[in-house]
Design a protein around this nucleic acid. Structure first.
Length: 212
DNA sequence: TAGGCCATCTGGTCCT
DNA sequence: AGGACCAGATGGCCTA
C-alpha cells in the first residue's frame, strides 16, 4: 500500500485533481469520476450495464433539443461540485484523524520500536496505558501519604482499580465506559504490565492476549 | 484463499 | 446553506 501524503487545499483547486492521492483509490480506478458522481446513490458496480445503456439511448434519442435542460445541467454541476468538495473535506478529516492517531502512537511504548499498532489497538492500548499510569500514581500516593503503610502491606491491601486491563476483553468494550468491577490489582500487576511479553507484533498489543 | 486492516466515497443527520 | 461528523459500502493490499 503506497500512500502519498499530500497537503490539500480547500477550495476550487481541489476540484481539479483531488483523486490523485492514493493509487488504490477506488475512484481512481474507475474510468470516469464523473460517472460515479452523477449517480450518487449507486454503488460503483451499478454504474455499468442497464443504467448506462439507458442513458446512452436517451442521449441519442434526444440529442438535439430535449436533452437535460440547461438548469438541469447546472444543478448536476452544482451537485457534483458539492460532492467533490465534501469528499475532499472528508479525506482531510480522516487524514487529521490519522495524524492524531500517529501522535498517540508516538507516546505509547511499543516493542519493537517500529511495530505499528492498528487503529483499534492504539486506542485500546492508550486506554490501558493511561489507566496503568494513573494506577501507578495512585499507589505511589498511598505510599507517601501514609508513612505507616509499608510497601509490603500495600500488596495485601489489594486496591480495587476501575479497569481490568489485564483481561483479554476490553473493560470498556461493552459501551465505552469503565467497569467498576475489576480483578485484583496490585503493584505486581502494574509491573507485569510493563514487562515485555512475547507477541507477534508488540508486547502491548491488545487483542492478542495481553489486555483489552 | 480467507480474513484483517485500511483509504476512500457516499448519503444522511446535526450543527452553526 | 454549508461544513462536520458518522456509518455503510467498496475495493486494494497484506499475511497466515
Amino acid at each position: 500500500m503506497v500512500l502519498v501524503k499530500v497537503e490539500y487545499r480547500d477550495e476550487e483547486e481541489d476540484l481539479i485533481s483531488p483523486m490523485s492521492i492514493s493509487p488504490q483509490s477506488p475512484a481512481q480506478l474507475c474510468s470516469s469520476d464523473d460517472e460515479r458522481l452523477l449517480s450518487p446513490a449507486s454503488s460503483p458496480s451499478s454504474l455499468h450495464g442497464k443504467e448506462q445503456d439507458e442513458g446512452s439511448k436517451r442521449s441519442k434519442r434526444s440529442s438535439r433539443s430535449r436533452g437535460p435542460s440547461r438548469s438541469g445541467e447546472v444543478v448536476m454541476k452544482v451537485k457534483k461540485t458539492r460532492r467533490i468538495k465534501a469528499n475532499n473535506r472528508e479525506r482531510n478529516r480522516m487524514h487529521h484523524l490519522n495524524s492524531a492517531l500517529d501522535s498517540l502512537r508516538e507516546v505509547l511504548p511499543t516493542l519493537p520500536e517500529d511495530a505499528k499498532l492498528t487503529k483499534i489497538e492504539t486506542l485500546r492500548f492508550a486506554h490501558n496505558y493511561i489507566w496503568a499510569l494513573s494506577e501507578t500514581l495512585r499507589l505511589a500516593d498511598q505510599i507517601y501519604d501514609s508513612p505507616s503503610t509499608s510497601p509490603s502491606s500495600l500488596s495485601d491491601s489489594s486496591p480495587s482499580p476501575s479497569i481490568s486491563w489485564a483481561s483479554t476483553s476490553s473493560p470498556s468494550s461493552s459501551c465505552g465506559s469503565f467497569s467498576p468491577a475489576s480483578p485484583s490489582s496490585s503493584t505486581s500487576d502494574i509491573m507485569d504490565y510493563w514487562q515485555p511479553q512475547d507477541h507477534h507484533r508488540s508486547p502491548f498489543v491488545p487483542g492478542r492476549g495481553v489486555f483489552i
